[in-house]
Design a binder for these strands. Structure first.
Lengths: 175, 175
DNA sequence: AGAATCATGTAAGGGGTTACATGATTCG
DNA sequence: CGAATCATGTAACCCCTTACATGATTCT
């Protein structure tokens, strides 16, 4: 989930404590993603080591040194690509897809709309796969049947919601 | 998730490799829970250390020694209690609740039915909480609105599915 | 004879957690 | 003056994963 930090730093360089405060607010991205402070600093380290971020030490007045991070070209490219790709597993909808949507919305309604369209296509294939699996079920295995029913229900739920998203994004498109 | 091993051992003592083979089959519990072999042995160790399991070494013919595990009274109690408690977070429905249901069904349709009823009650409170949170939303925060809508959709999906479960369990109740 | 299976593990590491260390600054 | 906040980390641990070690037995 490190990559989400890149989205927060896109366009506005920040230091670790800024990010921590931002992610401590109750709304926005923190509705779907939490991180603890020590792990945040570790993630910034590893993103710097893999070339997605660069930092510079800044002294403001007498306060402690700040390490301000900004995206590298490589980091920008990773991030821009990430928010344009749908998630490939249903279990990633709840957290990862919503985070992508958060960042895509920050970019533009068009970006968000395209993300939603791509996700709708993937979700449709999930549905077909589950339906196909249900054909080969042992008829007297009640548990297996219930498992597949639950998956179909969840997938349908996501599909309806994605349709809602697409609709409200189209309305906002002229903004 | 260690506790699921207790369910598999309830009534039929097995050794690690037996459990591994059982969990490698494509149907039943392995639809919702996977474990790799090395971790399985580690879990059996820790369940023995915390008093839920006891083991005895068995030699069959010339084959390698088997370590056969069986539930202790304490382990039995932990397990029986676990399958009678609903899950308290929506994110646990997909894996943990389905596993509980798997074991509850092994016990009896009544046990499963009661589990489903308890889960329905908890799920209803989730729904009310989400609806309450939606009242305090900043009106022009599109992302937050979409997040809550997605949660409501997922919760409703689970509710419908739980209703289906309750229905089909009632039909099987006389079996 | 070679491959797959039986059977139990160890070692290393990924990704996350909580608790704690440190020291300055600002707020009440 | 004491508490909260600013700012960056370290250390230990939990849960789980992959890869590998070991050695016997059964299948083809």
């Amino acid at each position: 989930m490190e990559i989400m930090l890149l989205g927060l730093l896109d366009g506005e360089p920040m230091h670790g404590y800024d990010l921590f405060k931002y992610l401590s607010r109750p709304d926005g991205l923190s509705r779907v993603w939490h991180i603890n402070q020590s792990n945040l600093y570790a993630m910034l380290d590893s993103l710097e080591q893999d070339g997605s971020l660069e930092s510079q030490l800044i002294q403001v007045g007498n306060s402690p040194m700040r390490k301000e991070y900004h995206l590298t070209a490589e980091g920008t490219q990773r991030y821009k690509q990430w928010i344009r790709e749908p998630v490939l597993h249903g279990r990633d909808m709840r957290q990862v897809f919503l985070a992508k949507l958060y960042f895509a919305l920050k970019e533009s309604s068009e970006t968000a709309f395209e993300l939603v369209q791509k996700q709708k296509a993937v979700t449709e294939t999930w549905k077909r796969e589950v339906e196909a699996s249900m054909q080969n079920l042992n008829a007297d295995n009640e548990f297996d049947r219930l498992v597949f029913c639950s998956r179909l229900k969840q997938i349908s739920g996501w599909q309806e919601w994605l349709d809602d998203c697409a609709g409200s994004l189209l309305l906002n498109r002229t903004k």
